[in-house]
């Protein structure tokens, strides 16, 4: 489903964010991307969503080569992905319901069906009662859960999350992790970039460990694809 073959991405000729990365992730896997800050976790996720393109190597998502994708095809790739950004990127002039509705509006869902799906997604993350609230009125954990609701409202096959539990206290972080676990359990492929090794420890997730842009052999967990 997601395959990297000798992928490199440089921001400047001598600074490699990712260097010769090769791995494969099967449908339905839960993969934790670990590593220090600046190790290349965000870049790896951005390559999957075609927010960035590889300088060399091949990134395959759902059988599509991201490097060959025409600009006009990128929106349709993204509609099959759920993205949770490090900075959340919520729209602060829209309420919880409208924020969650956005991907469905973009995809052109009929309004009734869209409203039904929005409520289902909000229910899943426990924000159903706050649908009229503006994001500023939400706590940090609630904002994060809103970001997740927006990412999954499209029912994507792949969910990508960049540091979804940063800035959250351990209890709230645990609740957010539980939401990802639920999606994994219903068959969604989940990639979570996090420096928090213990986040999904009970699930024994596959792990990709990055160190200065290179993939480290990780003795602590199964490599993905097995």
């Amino acid at each position: 489903m997601i395959r990297f073959e000798h992928v490199s991405r440089r921001y400047q000729p001598d600074i490699a964010a990712l260097l010769d990365i090769t791995f494969e992730i099967d449908t339905g896997q839960l993969v934790l991307i670990g590593g220090h800050s600046g190790a290349g976790k965000t870049t790896l996720l951005k390559l999957i969503a075609a927010i960035e393109r590889p300088d060399s190597g091949m990134v395959m998502v759902n059988g599509q080569n991201i490097g060959d994708l025409k600009p006009a095809a990128i929106p349709f790739l993204r509609r099959n992905l759920g993205l949770v950004f490090q900075d959340q990127k919520l729209l602060f002039d829209r309420n919880v319901f409208e924020n969650t509705l956005l991907p469905l509006s973009i995809a052109g869902f009929p309004p009734k069906e869209a409203a039904r799906r929005v409520r289902a997604a909000l229910d899943k993350v426990g924000l159903l009662k706050r649908e009229r609230a503006l994001p500023v009125a939400l706590s940090g954990g609630e904002q994060q859960r809103l970001a997740i609701a927006r990412a999954v409202v499209n029912r994507p096959g792949i969910l990508l999350a960049d540091e979804p539990t940063a800035h959250l206290d351990p209890v709230t972080a645990g609740e957010v992790a539980a939401i990802f676990r639920d999606f994994h359990q219903v068959g969604v492929t989940v990639l979570v970039a996090s420096y928090d090794d213990q986040l999904f420890a009970p699930l024994a997730p596959s792990r990709l460990l990055l160190n200065h842009g290179t993939l480290m052999p990780d003795a602590g967990a199964r490599p993905p694809g097995q």
Binding site: P75, P103, I106
Partner: peptide, 16 residues
């Protein structure tokens, strides 16, 4: 600007 950027990331086409 923010709304446009977020919409793009969520799969909005240029026409949208």
């Amino acid at each position: 600007r923010t709304e446009i950027e977020v919409s793009r990331l969520l799969g909005a086409t240029d026409a949208f």
